[in-house]
Computed example of a mutant assay.
Amino acid sequence: MVYSMLLGASICLPIVGANVAIGEDAPEEKPSIKAVMKACFKGPLVKKVVAGKASDDEKKELHAMLVAMSETKPPRGSDESWQKLNKALRDASEKMLDGDAAAANLLNKAANCKACHSEHKPK
C-alpha cells in the first residue's frame, strides 16, 4: 500500500509541477530597435509627448521603450556613441515623467534621427 502511494506521488508531482510552471508568467521580451523606431519615432509617440498631448501612460511607455532600446547592442557603430545618444533620450524622457518643463525641448533635440542613423542604422 505504501509502495503504491509513493509510486502514485512520484508520477503526479512532476505533472503538477509542470502545470504550475506553465501557468507562470514568462519574462516579458524587450522590444527590438525596429519595434521602438516604429512605435516611437515613425509612430506618434515621441511627437505626442513633445507636443504635450500624451497621457501619463504614454509617457511611461515611451520611457520604457527608450530604456529597452538603450540596453540593446547597436547594429553597427561604436557602443560609446550608442550609449551617449541613448542616454540623451532616456534622460529627456525621464525628465518628462518628472514634469520638467524643459523636457519636451530636450526630447525633441535628442530624437534627432540623423544623429543616430548616420552611425548606427544598418545599411
Results as ranks from 00 to 15, higher is better:
residue 36 V to D: 00
residue 110 A to N: 03
residue 38 K to T: 09
residue 27 P to M: 09
residue 51 A to V: 08
residue 77 G to F: 08
residue 91 D to H: 06
residue 70 S to W: 05
residue 16 V to I: 13
residue 29 E to S: 13
residue 59 K to S: 06
residue 42 K to H: 15
residue 49 V to D: 00
residue 82 W to L: 00
residue 14 P to R: 04
residue 17 G to P: 05
residue 8 G to Y: 04
residue 84 K to S: 12
residue 115 A to L: 07
residue 23 G to F: 10
residue 76 R to D: 01
residue 19 N to K: 15
residue 44 P to G: 12
residue 24 E to N: 13
residue 50 V to N: 07
residue 96 M to F: 05
residue 29 E to K: 12
residue 99 G to E: 11
residue 114 K to P: 02
residue 67 V to D: 02
residue 67 V to N: 02
residue 85 L to Y: 15
residue 44 P to L: 14
residue 45 L to N: 06
residue 31 P to Q: 06
residue 104 A to I: 06
residue 103 A to E: 01
residue 117 H to C: 06
residue 116 C to H: 03
residue 61 E to I: 04
residue 11 I to S: 00
residue 90 R to V: 15
residue 25 D to G: 09
residue 68 A to M: 03
residue 24 E to M: 15
residue 23 G to M: 11
residue 15 I to E: 14
residue 87 K to D: 13
residue 40 C to A: 04
residue 49 V to R: 03
residue 67 V to H: 02
residue 88 A to W: 06
residue 37 M to I: 03
residue 49 V to Y: 05
residue 93 S to I: 00
residue 46 V to A: 00
residue 89 L to K: 02
residue 112 N to W: 08
residue 92 A to L: 04
residue 30 K to D: 06
residue 117 H to R: 10
residue 39 A to K: 10
residue 42 K to S: 11
residue 58 E to F: 14
residue 37 M to H: 12
residue 71 E to F: 05
residue 27 P to A: 04
residue 39 A to T: 13
residue 103 A to P: 00
residue 37 M to P: 00
residue 72 T to C: 09
residue 13 L to G: 05
residue 83 Q to N: 14
residue 106 L to C: 04
residue 68 A to L: 01
residue 85 L to N: 08
residue 8 G to Q: 12
residue 51 A to Y: 11
residue 100 D to V: 12
residue 21 A to M: 14
residue 101 A to S: 15
residue 60 K to Q: 02
residue 110 A to R: 02
residue 104 A to C: 05
residue 54 A to T: 01
residue 13 L to Q: 07
residue 78 S to M: 10
residue 57 D to T: 09
residue 111 A to S: 07
residue 11 I to N: 04
residue 66 L to E: 04
residue 9 A to P: 02
residue 53 K to W: 10
residue 39 A to N: 09
residue 83 Q to S: 11
residue 28 E to A: 12
residue 53 K to N: 07
residue 114 K to V: 14
residue 13 L to R: 11
residue 115 A to Q: 01
residue 44 P to S: 14
residue 84 K to H: 09
residue 40 C to W: 01
residue 54 A to E: 03
residue 48 K to E: 06
residue 41 F to D: 07
residue 25 D to E: 06
residue 100 D to A: 06
residue 36 V to F: 03
residue 60 K to M: 06
residue 18 A to H: 11
residue 105 N to F: 15
residue 73 K to A: 10
residue 60 K to S: 02
residue 57 D to W: 07
residue 48 K to D: 03
residue 115 A to H: 04
residue 25 D to I: 09
residue 26 A to F: 10
residue 43 G to N: 12
residue 45 L to H: 01
residue 30 K to I: 07
residue 113 C to L: 14
residue 57 D to H: 07
residue 47 K to Q: 11
residue 36 V to W: 02
residue 84 K to Q: 13
residue 93 S to C: 07
residue 97 L to M: 01
residue 61 E to S: 01
residue 110 A to Q: 00
residue 107 L to N: 02
residue 45 L to P: 00
residue 42 K to E: 12
residue 116 C to Y: 05
residue 20 V to I: 15
